[in-house]
Structure formats: structure tokens, C-alpha cells
Simulated scan of single mutants.
Amino acid sequence: MPADRPLLGAIEAGGTKFVLGVGHGPDAVIDQLQIATRDPETTLAETNAFFERHAGLAAIGIGSFGPLERDTRSPKWGHILATPKLGWSGFDLAGTVARANGVPIAFDTDVNAAALAEARLGAARDTGVSVYVTIGTGIGGGVIADGQIVGGTGHPELGHMRPRRNADDHGFDGICPFHGDCLEGLASGPAILARWGETLSHLPPDHAAHGIIAGYLAEMCNTLRAALAPDAIVLGGGVMATPGLFERVVAAAHASDGGYFALPAAEVIRRPALAPTSGLAGAFLLAADLL
């Protein structure tokens, strides 16, 4: 291991678990721990105790659930914004970690961190522009251009685009508290459970849900292709672990794109290469970039 590589900390802060790491990069992790996400005080006490075991940290990268403030010009930088997760709204996550460990903190969304890792090291490493989308408890996405995260005052909210409703998907208003039947309100894990009473993986292979969800995700992919012209769209998250879903999405995207795009859907739409550690790998990259 090169002696001149700094020792870094990494946090993938998820809504259900925190994954913590220490090492010289995503390829040189020397310690790792997974803890449950509870109230901020309990979770951060255990997080900081983990880092205290490792002297000489140069920086810590955090990829966190959101919504959050990633704009370094804002006085709320590093804070979790309004979230239904009890006790976390307004919590200064980056500041708490910085004060406890006395090192610089890089802070971004967990999905941006995963997008960065897949773009530099994983399924999209041969591309100039790529999108990573996670379809799970929620739907979120990150955009990478020339190895850097794309974002302005906030971060992309790909889960809140509004797909055209499938003609066979009626009588369901969607579960998003803001938009009802946006993509997250229709195709996230909780939306599938609310709509059909089972996870997609537990529904029979011939159930209509498979085609409906694949269609919504395919429409998302074609919308992203039209708006961003990405070289790769990487689809991750728990819902995408459903057997056959990836192939259904690719086929539906191809069938509905009208032959408009130069590259075939099967070349652009990809599986993640780093899952399930994409987010932690990205947090290491955020810390390294900070230095």
C-alpha cells in the first residue's frame, strides 16, 4: 500500500443503516462497520467512536440520505433538511462529524456518492456523462459529467419526475406526499407494496406489476437520454434486484424510444458494478477529492 496515500474516513449514511469505513481509498479499506440508523445523537456517538479508533485521519467523506444542503455557500451546508425521519430534520450532520473528529468533511447525497463511484470505478467508468439511479425505498439519482458531480443549488430529484400513467394502472393515486403519482410515488418499493400488497420480487413472474414498473422505469431512462444524452444509465437499488426486471426495463426502453437515439438501450442502460458498496466507495472519493 503506498505510504503517501492519506488515511480517509467514509460514511454512507442511509435511512436504515450507516456504513462506516476507514482506509486509503475504496480499493484499500482497512476497517468497516455497519450500524443501525437511530436518532442522531445515538447514531453519531457510535459513528464517532468508530473513527476514534483510527488516528491520523486526513478527511472524512459523507454520502447521506436527504434531502440535504450540499451548497457550501449556504449557512445550512451539511444539514439534513425537512425529512420524515424522526429527529433528523435540521440536523447538522457534517458539522457534528467535523467537531468530533477535527478533520475536513466532504458532504453530498448518498446517491451522488454512488454515482461518482460508478462513474470513476464501476459500470460507467468509460463514459463522459453518466447517471446513476437507485430504485428502492425511494428513487434518487446522481449525474456525473467528466468525473464530477453535476448540481447547482440543490441536487437532482429524479424520483419526482412525472411519468405518463400506464393505461392498465388505474385506481392508484401514488404514495408521494408531495406529488402523488410521480415516479417515486408509483415505482418505489413502498409504492409497489401499497399498490399490490407485495414486493415486486414476491409477485408471480406473470403479474402485471412487472410490466407496469418496467414501463415507468423505461420512460425515466428515455427521458434522461433525451435531456442529458448520457453514455450510461446505471440502475441500482433493491427493487432492481427483482429477477428479470432489468431485462424488462431495457426491452421497454428500446420498444418505446422509436429508434430516435443513436445508441441502443442495451448499451446505455447498465447494472451497477460496485453494488452494494457503491455509496461507501463514493464517500471515500469525496474525501479524497477534498484533499
Rank of each mutant, 00 (worst) to 15 (best):
Leu93Met: 08
Thr96Trp: 13
Leu121Met: 15
Arg99Cys: 09
Ile135Asn: 04
Asn112Val: 11
Ala98Gln: 15
Asp146Ile: 01
Ala100His: 02
Gly136Ile: 09
Ala123Trp: 04
Gly136Tyr: 08
Gly90Trp: 13
Ala145Asp: 05
Phe91Lys: 11
Thr134Tyr: 04
Val129Gly: 03
Val129Asp: 04
Ala113Gly: 10
Ala98Glu: 15
Leu116Asn: 12
Val133Phe: 04
Gly102Ala: 10
Ile149Pro: 00
Ala94Phe: 01
Arg125Asp: 07
Ala113Gln: 07
Gly147Gln: 12
Asn112Thr: 10
Ala124Gly: 11
Thr109Arg: 12
Pro84Thr: 07
Thr109Glu: 12
Ala123Glu: 06
Leu116Arg: 04
Thr96Arg: 15
Ala145Leu: 13
Trp88Cys: 06
Ser130Leu: 06
Gly128Met: 06
Val131Trp: 01
Thr137Val: 05
Gly142Tyr: 04
Ile80His: 02
Asp108Cys: 00
Ala82Pro: 00
Val143Asp: 03
Pro156Leu: 09
Thr137His: 09
Ala124Leu: 08
Asp146Gly: 14
Phe107Arg: 10
Val103His: 07
Gly90Phe: 12
Phe107Met: 08
Gly128Gln: 10
Phe91Met: 11
Ala94Pro: 08
Phe107Cys: 04
Ile105Gln: 01
Asp92Ser: 14
His155Leu: 15
Ala113Ile: 13
Arg99Thr: 12
Gly138Cys: 10
Val131Arg: 03
Tyr132Ala: 00
His155Ile: 10
Ala119Ile: 11
Gly90Asp: 14
Lys85Arg: 08
Asp108Arg: 02
Ser130Glu: 01
Leu93Gly: 01
Thr134Leu: 08
Thr153Gly: 15
Pro84Met: 11
Ile144Gln: 01
Gly102Arg: 13
Gly140Leu: 03
Leu81Glu: 03
Ser130Ala: 15
Ala106Cys: 08
Asp108Ser: 14
Val143Phe: 03
Ala124His: 02
Gly152Asn: 04
Gly90Asn: 14
Glu118Pro: 07
Phe107Trp: 07
Ala114Pro: 01
Thr134Ser: 13
Val97Ile: 15
Asp92Gly: 05
Ala124Lys: 02
Ile144Arg: 00
Ala145Glu: 09
Gly95Asn: 12
Gly154Gln: 08
Asn101Phe: 00
Val129Gln: 00
Asp126Ser: 09
Gly154Val: 02
His155Asp: 03
Ala98Val: 05
Thr134Glu: 09
Asp110Gly: 08
Asn101Ala: 07
Gly78Glu: 03
Gly78His: 01
Ile149Tyr: 01
Val111Arg: 04
His79Leu: 01
Ala123Cys: 11
Ala82Asp: 13
Glu118Asp: 10
Thr127Asn: 01
Gly90Arg: 12
Ile144Pro: 00
Leu81Lys: 00
Tyr132Ile: 01
Gly147Tyr: 11
Ala98Asp: 06
Tyr132Pro: 00
Trp88Thr: 02
Thr134Gly: 10
Phe91Thr: 12
Gly141Asp: 05
Thr109Met: 07
Ala123Ser: 14
Thr109His: 12
Gly95Ala: 13
Ser89Thr: 15
Pro156Asp: 13
Gly138Trp: 02
Thr109Pro: 09
Trp88Met: 07
Val103Trp: 02
Ala113Pro: 06
Thr137Leu: 05
Gly78Val: 03
Ile105Leu: 03
Glu118Phe: 14
Thr127His: 05
Gly136Leu: 11
Ala82Trp: 02
Ala145Gly: 05
Leu116Val: 07
Glu118Arg: 09
Gly78Ala: 12
Lys76Cys: 14
